[in-house]
Design a protein around this nucleic acid. Structure first.
Lengths: 351, 351
DNA sequence: TCGTTCTGTGCAATCGTTTGCACAATGGAC
DNA sequence: GTCCATTGTGCAAACGATTGCACAGAACGA
């Protein structure tokens, strides 16, 4: 039953046609095909076809030192933000003849380091990282070793590295402006980890946007978290509510945090959006189906992945192409988690 | 800046120590290390460490004809069912020293064929398929070529192939029994594609379970779909409702179909679970957050992935190990989409 | 007719490892 | 002291492709 089936090599094809293996190699390579008599080309091609020849990528890789493989590192594939990005990456890579090997890091520096080491041992031609920290030695190492790298979703302080990220400032501004339009003035922010570019930039942008709208962002109404997770969102929102400070809306740094906030609001016996409006960030799949449907900032996830992959291909194929930071425009998606502020004072209800 | 940094090879290490490359190779391979004087072993190891030697997996792969890579094919990473499975697969593979390369097929036979071809060109040591059809020539090809394959989530009619799937019959029985317990007797089924094992088995199991509960499953209340998608769920449920037949509950073949049914119910001006109870299948992430939270059948996604990967490793490392079909037990998760049947007759409301 | 330039193909080295085989040195048995 | 195992290492040939170089033969001008 199990027939290991002897692999057909370039030599088999050569023998069949009666030419030298190198000739076959040249025929098979579109770039050198022109140097061979068209008659032979035809014979070689049909022989290869008949024999079912498939180039051995391993051998090619060894000789050319290119694996046509790229490593893709993400925090956690289980976070709905990433699958669309990954699809974008894979689709664009496939178009360029590359394949992706995936690694989950759970946002652990150690696993990240391991994963990069594994990928490099596998001779990946480049790396796409959705895991970058603001100050990331791993990124720095790759860059200084000349390994093509593109950051996606998060950027980094490391100089000279290309990135494809969302315009966080604009997104947050849209959220704040939307809330102000609904009459909210006391707005809280659940910030993401400040070691991540997204967490930090969005937090800063929150202060900026508030000022820009003529509102005051109180430090006491800005809660920090250690991870972009529902648990942390729940904790932060619960703290905010428990503090007794008065506010009618929460701008969360991402959708997962917002979902956590939902729980805290519910636990406190309040209603969203009746008592408390909430905005998210990312427009992950399915946040339109939760209760209430989440008002959030949509970022072009798939496109972001595609663009990152395209950029990487460029980097890999034309060395020394300059690093570029691309910013994609986000869009406010208004759903059911935000509503006009009530006349009744929230604090009055609670005190 | 970009320093290509010359790769350090086994030969560099050998030169440094003053031994032959083959000796270094033997030291580095735990299995042959015992044959070398322990003094030399120590020297080689420390030299390798100092020089920062990393084995070139491509070269190893060429020589040994093993890539320590496995291909993982899934329909669509964007479907929340799959990420947990993939995590399980990756974690178990990593433990065994393998890495995964992912491919999305969108359930298209052609893309599936391409993807398998690509993976095989990359010399994957084995394949994990979440894409199998009941009668799948691609699976058959792999098996007859002696390429280790494990099916996950879906099984196949192809003989002699290992699989790790859920006990669909039990799951459906649980759903039906739950509904009967709530007083429902006229129950509809939205079936998945009959070309997929899951779709077919669950449909058959629906008839069985109904009979088992002493209820009649009417053919008119079983709607078929062409894909496990929200769109198809919406269409099928809308058809069912439009048919004018009387029923108070829907057993959907998976969560996505159930979510589609939600929309149809809403469109028809009905309420779930007030007018219509709905059950899903899979317990995908986030279905506990939708409105109403979905009553569904939980399958151990992560474990399923892990188990499949473990099985594959076994197949790859001990050839001719027999094919096995593993079945995992599902669990009914009761949430808000199912309720006691109302006295009021649904049909009466509409006619 | 001879030399020169092209063109198309073959030759052989190479990428970094692994591994069967050969063989020197060591140690033990007699 | 001889001989035979045993042990540890080196040698060299793979694995399957790519590619610089060499070299026949054709084409061409003088």
């Amino acid at each position: 039953m199990n027939s290991p089936r002897p692999r057909v090599t370039i030599r088999d094809v050569a023998d069949r046609v009666g030419v030298h293996p190198s000739t076959v190699s040249r025929v098979l390579n579109p770039a050198t095909r022109g140097r061979i008599t068209s008659e032979i080309v035809k014979k070689v091609l049909s022989a290869a076809d008949e024999l079912g020849y498939r180039p051995n990528q391993t051998a090619q890789g060894l000789r050319t030192n290119r694996s046509r493989t790229v490593g893709v590192l993400i925090p956690d594939i289980t976070n709905p933000l990433f699958p669309p990005i990954i699809r974008g990456v894979e689709d664009a890579l496939a178009e360029g003849g590359y394949t992706a090997v995936l690694g989950n890091t759970d946002n652990l520096a150690e696993r990240e380091r391991d994963a990069v080491a594994t990928m490099r041992a596998r001779q990946v031609d480049g790396l796409i990282l959705a895991t970058a920290r603001k100050d990331d030695p791993i990124v720095a190492d790759c860059v200084s070793d000349g390994l093509p790298v593109v950051l996606v979703n998060r950027s980094s302080d490391v100089p000279g590295v290309s990135s494809v990220v969302n315009d966080d400032a604009m997104g947050i501004a849209q959220a704040v402006s939307h809330l102000k339009g609904l009459g909210h003035s006391r707005i809280a922010h659940i910030a993401g980890p400040q070691t991540l570019s997204t967490g930090e930039v969005r937090r800063r942008s929150f202060y900026d946007a508030m000022a820009c709208e003529g509102l005051v962002a109180e430090d006491d109404l800005v809660a920090e978290t250690t991870a972009f997770s529902e648990d942390e969102g729940l904790r932060a929102a619960a703290d905010l509510i428990a503090s007794g400070r008065e506010f009618t809306a929460i701008v969360a740094s991402n959708d997962l945090l917002a979902l956590g906030a939902y729980e805290a609001i519910d636990d406190a016996g309040l209603a969203c959006p009746g008592d408390m409006s909430v905005t998210g960030f990312n427009d992950m799949p399915f946040v339109d189906r939760v209760a209430p449907p989440l008002t959030t900032i949509r970022i072009p996830q798939y496109e972001m992945g595609r663009e990152a992959a395209r950029r990487l291909i460029q980097l890999m194929e034309t060395p020394y192409s300059p690093a570029r930071a691309t910013t994609l425009r986000p869009e406010l998606i208004v759903r059911g988690s935000t509503a006009r502020v009530r006349n009744v004072n929230l604090a009055a209800n609670r005190n």
